[in-house]
């Protein structure tokens, strides 16, 4: 368990760097480090399915983010926080930490869940579905309805993005109002 805590501490440091750094490119690189740490944490917790998905989605997100920020002068805005706001947020964080510590104390021990629903899948999953990979047998057989909902969400999101970013149909007038959005 020690290596998991090391990875988690590195992820927290990366997240702080991503928030605090001046350059937007180094902020994205630090964000990628957080995602890579999450991949290693999944591997330590013995979830290779999640680790593969997390790794490839992280790479895709990083490519899109770098592509979106490189060559575009994104302004870094420096906020002028006064001391009262900082003091208040520190107090709120301390209260949140006290409450969450008490909640985490009452959680069951790691690896011993209270819910016993999963026992049925572990015992009968391979027999009933014929799939050796238990995760796939759960997401595509026992819980396929959830996967249908997830697929619908992804389909709708891509449809919405393509409708907003489309080239056809956007009016290409030379007036100053319509200069904002324009296809290549």
């Amino acid at each position: 368990m020690l290596e998991l805590y090391i990875v988690l501490i590195l992820m927290i440091i990366g997240a702080i760097i991503a928030v605090e750094t001046k350059s937007i490119l180094s902020s994205i690189v630090a964000l990628g480090k957080v995602g890579l740490g999450l991949t290693i944490a999944f591997l330590i917790l013995k979830a290779p399915d999640l680790a593969i998905v997390q790794l490839v989605v992280e790479i895709l997100t990083l490519i899109i983010l770098i592509r979106a920020t490189l060559g575009r002068d994104v302004k870094y805005t420096k906020e002028n926080q006064n001391w009262g706001v900082k003091f208040l947020s520190i107090i709120l964080i301390i209260i949140f930490l006290i409450f969450s510590y008490n909640v985490l104390q009452s959680l069951p021990e790691f690896g011993n869940p209270i819910l016993k629903v999963a026992d049925y899948y572990i015992e009968n999953g391979m027999k009933e579905t014929g799939a050796a990979n238990l995760v796939t047998s759960v997401i595509l057989d026992f819980r396929a309805f959830d996967t249908l909902g997830e697929a619908t969400v992804l389909f709708t999101a891509i449809l919405g993005a393509l409708a907003v970013l489309r080239k056809n149909g956007i009016k290409d007038k030379d007036t100053k109002e319509n200069k904002g959005v324009q296809g290549d």
């Binding site: 895709l60 490519i63 899109i64 592509r67 979106a68 579905t129 014929g130 799939a131 050796a132 796939t136 047998s137 595509l140 057989d141 396929a144 996967t147 697929a151 992804l154 389909f155 891509i158 993005a161 393509l162 970013l165 489309r166 080239k167 324009q182 296809g183 290549d184």
Partner: peptide, 30 residues
């Protein structure tokens, strides 16, 4: 494993083509 392989192929078509399409739209958009 019955329909699980077919469902995997369906999800592959959806996710692969959709994410490529999203990337193309984001790159070509200026």
């Amino acid at each position: 494993a019955g329909t699980i392989l077919l469902s995997n192929i369906a999800i592959f078509l959806k996710v692969g083509a959709g994410l490529f399409l999203l990337f193309v739209a984001l790159v070509l958009f200026k």
